[in-house]
């Protein structure tokens, strides 16, 4: 596989997104709320009496939202990237070029993965700075960085992001319009949302070990989804069965 070809495909999608800003903006609202809105909520709460003891648990819970963000952010981009090609009927001329299926798939995946993970990292940076700034005084120590957040950000979030991209490729092969692809694609958030609420309900606990186990499970699912995506993203399949 030639990475330069994959990058050409991805660059074209980046260019498209800069012209269809709605696709990018729709992905960024969540990131803005988490990385800026939540620290201000924490600032408000930390001023309340007896709030200091509850702060670590609250910040732990908020950290997990970056996993949900990693599942959410690539959905609109991945949906548009593939279903957009279907709608514009541009897959046939694209597949007629001397570009392999793997290079096209890699390009499409990079186009969805890179903006999502970059915005996650930038959001996380803003989040950690603001949280440390607002909580240093009541906690008397810097809450971030910590190992759990590092696992969430550098291991779990990328794996979840890959899963969301793969899931959306599978969804895109079965639907004909971008909105339907997005609506179905957002279902990928459900298992991670469930983990978040079960943690809040104290059914699960967010420990380093649990996060590592979760990362391992997601990695295995990534492998299965990758296998399915490779089987689906075949030029003959695309031209004759992707309706």
């Amino acid at each position: 596989m030639r990475l330069s070809k994959a990058w050409t495909v991805a660059s074209k999608d980046f260019k498209t997104f800069t012209k269809k800003k709605g696709i990018l903006y729709s992905s960024l609202y969540f990131e803005l709320v988490v990385s800026i809105g939540l620290p201000f909520l924490v600032l408000y709460i930390s001023g309340k009496p007896n709030a200091v003891a509850a702060l670590p648990q609250l910040l732990n819970a908020f950290s997990f939202l970056f996993v949900i963000g990693a599942a959410l952010l690539p959905v609109s981009i991945a949906s548009y990237s593939l279903v957009g090609e279907k709608v514009q009927k541009s897959l046939e001329p694209l597949l007629a070029t001397p570009t392999t299926d793997e290079e096209i798939l890699a390009g499409k995946s990079i186009a969805a993965f890179l903006p999502a993970i970059c915005s996650s990292f930038i959001g996380a940076l803003v989040f950690t700075i603001l949280i440390d700034l607002f909580t240093y005084s009541p906690l008397k120590y810097l809450y971030f960085p910590n190992w759990d957040f590092a696992i969430i950000l550098f291991l779990l979030a990328p794996l979840v992001c890959i899963l969301a991209v793969g899931f959306n490729v599978l969804v895109s092969s079965r639907v004909n319009d971008v909105r339907t692809a997005q609506q179905i694609g957002y279902l990928i958030i459900l298992p991670f949302g469930a983990v978040y609420f079960l943690t809040e309900l104290k059914v699960l606990t967010q420990t380093t070990n649990n996060l590592l186990i979760m990362a391992a499970v997601v990695a295995v699912i990534d492998g299965i989804v990758f296998y399915l995506v490779r089987a689906t993203f075949q030029r003959e399949e695309i031209l004759t069965k992707w309706k």
């Binding site: 498209t16 009927k89 046939e92």
Partner: peptide
């Protein structure tokens, strides 16, 4: 594929570009 050019029945250009 390098030595052929295809004009498909659905022309399939990128409308935003």
């Amino acid at each position: 594929r390098k030595l052929i050019g295809l004009v498909p029945d659905n022309i399939g250009l990128y409308e935003e570009l």
